[in-house]
Design a binder for these strands. Structure first.
Lengths: 331, 331
DNA sequence: CTGAAAGCGCTAACAT
DNA sequence: ATGTTAGCGCTTTCAG
């Protein structure tokens, strides 16, 4: 209220003529005080502008009221992660919980972050911070499996394999004979699943696999180079599936420069949908990862685990979909 | 180490045969203990796997070691904000500081977040949470001015007006006679500046202003509708500047459907650059907002203010640029 | 150079 | 139904 510094619980108690405990109980609905005193204390607290000190509460209760969210630095440009983040934040807000961003950009110098649990979006097995988090004592929920040898407390899974198969089937139905995959590296469950699914599918369907792998976070120019090289080396390719976010849009100019007509002599699809793909010419078919829902699901699972309502080792499925657009529909 | 629960400072002190104080000082380089004891204590702490309790430290020191970051919910899909976020997080990590995400999605029920200061990315004057934050006692740094009547402790400013003028000049040089602006609403300093600058420029250059305003967070279909209507009503328009992020790419199909050829009979530009604009056909000219740098600048200013190295009321300039692409270059 | 004690603001056990 | 007391783990006087 005035310049006396922050108003403490003691100040409220004193002003209300009750004890610390009673004030505390009144403000937290502990059901220990009479309705009359409760109202009185609340009124006084409001008048004084009381605001509880979260650090004190955390110290006392041994919980922080915040969860951590880790995203691999190399992937962070994408719209996918932005939505994922807000899925997590949104769900956390419902639980009255803060979300703290953790990155791998800087060495894990920091002792411990003040979090009760952590959500890992697409943990890279090569990421030291991810390892540290998984080895630490706080519960961790990952979006997709961790490909290394640590056990998160919870996992939210989407069936990327199934959707990619659907996509490949769709391309084949549309007449594609020579389908190539511009793949992401296998340091991620997602990247690994896509590669394996593609190779399996080719095998099962007696097709020659044409796979070009790229590291996560490769600049778009590298994606373009790969595709240029691919088309040069194997001009018979008549369908291209791009795994990395942003790749499909980025290679469009290259495909055109190579004289290809998207949707006609070359079908193009992406494994990550984004608004940009809706407005290219033609719009590009993509797997819809529903990132916001995935983020929310991760947060929900983490809270369930923290509350003891889900056992450690729980994994939950998160549906994804396929959005067909003109880039894979001839005519 | 074992299952004894977290290792406390007392445990370390005991194991090292020193007092709490000495252990604390040794681990924090307070320059009070001899080098020998310091090394010893550090060794013991490492062996035991000591990790300081941030809540306790916060409580004692009356600081949290975290800053808040608020983004308007309606804008959060964009690549701009993703980069902005990581600019802030990156800079904060350098200062050994966590970043907590704050949103307006849910009512400001939460008492107080555990933060020492807050960065507001493009504060909407209509946002209740923004108001609350600005009225609270924690220092606030905004990216762009707050258009309401509150005074943030610091402001990071970019000269959007100047760049838009450059862009308009560039369009005029390229022969555009009838330049329209697809504008964002004026609840934001940025949106307001763009509108005013455009209207001024038209006035000064004796041109008829053609401005269509849209609310923040409008879906792309609304943007498209606006442009369709604009072209119908004023077919003489030969250049279009799009303020909202994502609008330029989204209206491309509409422009084509209207029989326009971008870069020929219609010049197209965006006030917000993004990777998508580099790969459209043709690539689209845009103002480069350098979001990552802006985010870092906000965090830096906030830390300077918190450290008392910058006075309240400081504002700092953050350079932005113009990236000319084929959409505004005839031939 | 180091130790002992006080206390940050809060909640939980134990009294009334 | 309410008050008293004892810490949560840490940093900071104040004494040696």
């Amino acid at each position: 209220m005035s310049t006396e510094g922050p108003v403490t619980l003691i100040a409220v108690a004193k002003a209300a003529g009750v004890s610390k405990t009673t004030a505390s109980d009144a403000l937290r609905n502990s059901g220990r005080v009479s309705e009359r005193t409760r109202q009185h204390v609340i009124a006084v607290a409001n008048r004084l502008g009381y605001t509880p000190n979260p650090s004190a509460r955390s110290l006392r209760m041994a919980t922080t009221g915040a969860i951590g969210l880790h995203l691999p630095e190399v992937l962070t440009r994408s719209e996918y992660y932005m939505s994922f983040v807000f899925g997590v934040v949104d769900q956390a807000a419902r639980m009255n919980c803060d979300v703290t961003l953790l990155t791998s950009h800087h060495p894990p110098s920091r002792a411990t972050h003040r979090v009760d649990g952590v959500v890992l979006g697409d943990p890279l097995e090569t990421d030291a911070v991810v390892r540290g988090l998984l080895d630490s004592s706080v519960p961790v929920v990952t979006c997709e499996r961790f490909t290394g040898d640590a056990e998160p407390a919870g996992v939210v899974l989407s069936d990327h394999g199934a959707q990619l198969e659907r996509l490949l089937g769709h391309l084949a139905d549309a007449g594609a004979q020579h389908i190539a995959l511009l793949a992401s590296s296998t340091v991620t469950d997602w990247g690994r699943t896509l590669q394996r699914t593609y190779l399996d599918w080719c095998e099962r369907n007696g097709r020659h696999a044409r796979l070009r792998e790229m590291a996560f976070g490769s600049p778009t120019t590298v994606m373009q180079d790969h595709v240029r090289a691919l088309l040069n080396a194997e001009p018979e390719v008549d369908a291209l599936v791009c795994a990395p976010d942003g790749a499909a849009a980025a290679v469009l100019p290259v495909l055109r420069a190579a004289g290809r007509t998207i949707g006609e002599d070359l079908l193009l699809a992406s494994c990550v949908d984004s608004t940009a793909l809706r407005y290219t010419d033609p719009p590009i078919t993509a797997i819809d990862l529903r990132p916001r829902e995935a983020g929310a699901a991760c947060a929900r699972l983490l809270f369930d685990i923290l509350a003891g309502e889900a056992p450690r080792g729980t994994s939950r499925a998160q549906p994804i979909g396929l959005t067909v657009r003109r880039s894979t529909v001839r005519g």
